[in-house]
Amino acid sequence: MTWVFIAMIVLAAAGVKLQDSLRDSLRPLVAPLCVAMIGVGLWGLAVIWTGSRVFPGPLQTCLGLAELIESERLWGDIIASLFRVTWGFFLAASVGIPLGLVVGWNMRVFTAMNPIIQGLRPISPIAWIPIAILWFGIGDGAGIFLIFLSAFFPIAVGTTAAVRNISLVHQRSAENFGLAGLELFRRVVFPAAMPQIITSLRIALGVAWLVIVAAEMVGMDSGLGYLINDARNAGSRYDLVVATMVVIGMIGIVLDLLIRQLERFDEVRWGYEKR
């Protein structure tokens, strides 16, 4: 086995060296793959050389992953986690965006609300777990509430900042053409803030995905976080622990890819190109 990993590392290193001779279209694929292979090789060697009985190597992790995929459990836990994240995130966006628009636009509201928002924001959503359980009990309600909290602050603060960044010429253009009230929000404030709002949504979704795992480890009886805890408690199945971590990472990437699709609309592309 040792030689397999060494061969992997040597091969990957050769791949990194050889990539210059590859077609341009392949290069962005090959380099990360090689680096990942080196990482996996080193991981395998480390497990062998330290003689660990508990910590799984790459192969055990793959087997663990296969076991998880075959068991009905994994899908149920994935759905449980995604369910909480989806609802918490949508609630946070539907409160955070309108609130951020108003707080960012209206100086009076800003003065009144900003200190409170800034005061609550640094409290880790994890610290809210006891209160979430107290209010909602063990289950989806507490999870959704915690995700709401995790996503709400990045969204509200990001939207506020986005509105305050609207350029003076655009504000004056709106004023010049007599835009006011809802129309002003619909035609100028909201679209002008949109690129930065999308960025804050992306950040919020990332945070939500981090927090849901922690929340499920502490205060819930389903979901990927709970699966990690359960695998450890039920006979130190660290192969399943690491396999679940891999699943969490992959879903995180997919979520980010999905939300990034928002950046491609014609109405917001101006906010990302040329900076």
Partner: peptide, 21 residues
């Protein structure tokens, strides 16, 4: 007393809206 749609300002730094066609 304030801006008015009957008198329009053309800005140097592109006052048009980049989010609109």
């Amino acid at each position: 007393a304030g801006p008015n749609p009957q008198r329009v300002f053309v800005f140097q730094e592109y006052g048009i809206f980049p989010w609109a066609s």
